[in-house]
């Protein structure tokens, strides 16, 4: 019973991680830029939804509105900031994304303050009974919504004309340009979609926990996900997101209590701290040593 409950929590948070990580991979594939500011868009999405509810919108409409706002913010980021840096080194562009993260945090801090805020209820209160264990609607909805949207996005990427142009731009931007694709517009689309996914991820995470500036650090968890999945694999992000979510949940629910009870019995150590926050990075360290291209990534080759 306990295992099933822990697994459900892991799937819920893991699928949200996947949603956020897919956005990072999408931008990386299209433009070669690792968006270190993805956590900022996650946080911005949650605060935008909260602000819209304060303006009188229902929580569900506010969530949808926040996703649209974040899509616009992502497209504007590309148009106003990154398109002007086309000839700058990729490292400089990555630093700018880090700068945007700091800027977004400062803006949210100035407007909403540093305190945790209770996030409005988007999904019905209560719990669903699955084989004798109760799982709140929040967790079920977060998992279902994230998984369905992730799969829908992968289908869009695979089977639609716009997805085909995205894949071509991601495969080889110079070749895509040569065959008549407006690559800059495709990069704008990638930023818009990525930010929208991050915004939705932010809303879901705020629903599961609460709203605070620390949501911006979720971007740091998304990086182990993309390293594990392979920096260029969207499906890898989905699988690795679920894997890391489960790993975190089982570390928090099983490993930490077991370790702490052992240590209390035999040593003077009382707590091991937030072990679940460390485990993803340990896994990434091991992964980089054993299979640096990730589970689904392809080993990079360069023509010389």
């Amino acid at each position: 019973m306990l295992l099933l409950q822990i697994a459900t929590a892991g799937i819920a948070t893991g699928s949200v991680y996947a949603l956020i990580a897919i956005g990072i991979v999408l931008i990386y594939k299209c433009s070669g830029v690792v968006n270190f500011g993805q956590g900022g868009y996650v946080m911005l999405g949650a605060y935008a939804a909260y602000a819209l509810t304060r303006l009188g919108l229902s929580p569900q409409l506010a969530a949808a509105g926040a996703v649209l706002i974040l899509a616009a913010v992502g497209a504007l980021t590309e148009l106003l900031v990154l398109r002007r840096m086309l000839k700058a080194p990729v490292v400089a562009v990555m630093m700018v994304t880090l700068g945007l993260l700091i800027l977004f945090r400062a803006v949210c801090l100035a407007i909403f303050g540093p305190d945790q805020i209770a996030f409005p209820q988007i999904f019905p209160q209560g719990a669903v009974d699955i084989a004798g264990i109760f799982i709140t609607y929040n967790y079920v909805a977060a998992a279902v919504l994230s998984l369905v949207l992730s799969l829908a996005f992968l289908a869009f990427y695979r089977y639609t004309p716009m997805g085909l142009m995205q894949r071509a731009a991601a495969d080889n931007s110079r070749a895509a340009l040569a065959v008549g694709i407006h690559v800059s517009n495709q990069v704008s689309v990638a930023w818009a979609v990525s930010s929208a996914l991050a915004g939705l991820g932010g809303v879901l995470l705020a629903t599961l926990n609460s709203l605070s500036l620390t949501l911006s650090s979720i971007g740091l968890v998304a990086f182990p996900v993309i390293v594990l999945g392979g920096l260029t694999s969207l499906m890898g992000s989905l699988v690795a997101g679920l894997l890391l979510g489960m790993l975190e949940a089982f570390t928090d629910g099983l490993l930490t209590p077991a370790l702490e009870s052992f240590l209390r019995a035999h040593t003077s150590v009382y707590s091991v701290g937030a072990l679940q926050q460390v485990v993803p990075y340990m896994l990434v360290g091991a992964m980089l040593l054993v299979r640096p291209q990730g589970i689904f990534g392809q080993r990079g080759t360069e023509r010389v």
Binding site: P161, L164, M165, R167, A168, D171, N172, A175, A176, A178, V179, G180, I181
Partner: peptide, 17 residues
């Protein structure tokens, strides 16, 4: 043009698009 990951049909569709 080196669009390695795409199929023949994908590339022709890009032309049509």
């Amino acid at each position: 043009a080196s669009l390695h990951d795409l199929t023949v049909l994908d590339i022709v569709k890009l032309g049509a698009g």
